[in-house]
Design a protein around this nucleic acid. Structure first.
Lengths: 217, 217
DNA sequence: GATAACTTGTGAAGAAATTCACAAGTTCAT
DNA sequence: ATGAACTTGTGAATTTCTTCACAAGTTATC
């Protein structure tokens, strides 16, 4: 294994999306354990909580280093700190929400994001009727201001909560504004340069997955 | 390849989750093509739209049969009908939403679900202050009524939009009520019998995935 | 300090998913 | 009718992901 100092995280090879998702899951469990005052945990216990195997947990972590003690397990505090570091959660991320409809407004009002370091700094909408109104203390801004605003505020992540038909156009604008990550709630497959990170939350797709499971289970 | 009649869908082996997600995606594209009056489409065109490869498209479909014509491609109408059949979308599914907070209310008001055959028949909340109020024409019912209601209405899918701390308890109640599919919006890993289909929509996890990508990209 | 009971980290093996590559079928133009 | 241009369906090859299995390290007990 490649040697590294405690403050650097070596990315030896491309990390699979499934691995990153599990790391995120592990972190949530660790924070839970931390709250309950548990100091140490084994890969087995972590696996049981997340519906995976201890080998999977150890392999996932092994991509980034060796964080455990043989015979003992992992320090909950240390491992969660490491995972936060790996996931890039040591800093605050600036998030904008585009689309102040039902979903966009619900997201803007959901304080779980800011609690985890994702700070919502602006809400945009293309509809002049919505512009100027406030959502959870944020005044809805015209979408036409996005490019200019972005120059000053340099938001990190854009949450797209717009109708499917508008999604691609808005995504293009987002990319043009220099934003490098998109969380897409619109049921539309976005075409973006591969330097842009995109995650989609597609509720229709999840429901159809359940429909399939119920039909063919 | 196993022989089968045109009306039956043979599930030869366990279908991967990723395959089902792609089928759902293909269906969305096909519906789009259908609307635009396109009669025929090749696996290549379908793949380009979804960011995958033509071989992947053909392999995905091959698990369920042969729906195309060599040299020509797929009939848009026929393939989308087949996919709806495969995904179990020929019938209407009865959905209940548990939790009438921000997310729950936004979901209840989002008409995209019913348009796709997922009919929201009830909204529940444990909070007596919310019970009795209406969300988009549905009166919020007390969660304590769920078990009894379910006996009569036999809902198919429960959408969990409750706080993380309550999620497991509510999931247990849902399972006990005979509901076999759960769409979980709570940031909590549910423990349910393996006969129950569960999909999780975890926005914190998606955001952390973006954070990782931005940090290590 | 020796033994028993744990647990990690990791190569190797195994399983699963994706991509390749091509025979076989279809259409169209001439 | 023939040839050219397409496209599917699918075994085989390849790549990726997961699980196995065990050496090596730690702690606790006597």
């Amino acid at each position: 294994m490649k040697k590294f100092t405690s403050s650097s995280i070596p990315i030896v090879k491309r990390i699979a999306d499934s691995t990153v998702r599990r790391l995120s899951l592990y972190l949530r469990f660790l924070e839970d354990f931390e709250k309950r005052g548990i100091a140490t945990i084994s890969s087995d216990e972590l696996a049981a909580r997340g519906g995976t195997t201890s080998a999977q947990v150890r392999k996932d972590l092994s991509f980034f280093g060796s964080f455990g003690k043989r015979g003992l397990g992992y320090s909950v505090a240390e491992l969660s700190a490491r995972l936060r570091q790996i996931l890039g959660l040591e800093r605050e991320w600036q998030v904008i929400i585009i689309g102040a409809g039902k979903i966009g407004a619900a997201l803007a009002q959901y304080h779980g994001f800011s609690q985890r370091g994702f700070r919502i700094i602006a809400v945009y909408d293309a509809d002049p009727d919505k512009v100027g109104r406030a959502v959870d203390g944020l005044v809805i801004r015209p979408l036409t201001d996005l490019a200019d605003d972005a120059k000053r505020q340099a938001p990190d992540i854009a949450v797209l909560a717009v109708p499917a038909v508008a999604a691609q156009e808005v995504a293009d604008l987002v990319v043009k504004s220099g934003i490098r990550a998109i969380l897409n709630f619109a049921p539309h497959q976005l075409q973006v340069p591969e330097t842009i990170a995109v995650k989609a939350v597609n509720m229709a797709m999840e429901l159809e997955g359940l429909s399939f499971a119920l039909t063919n289970g």
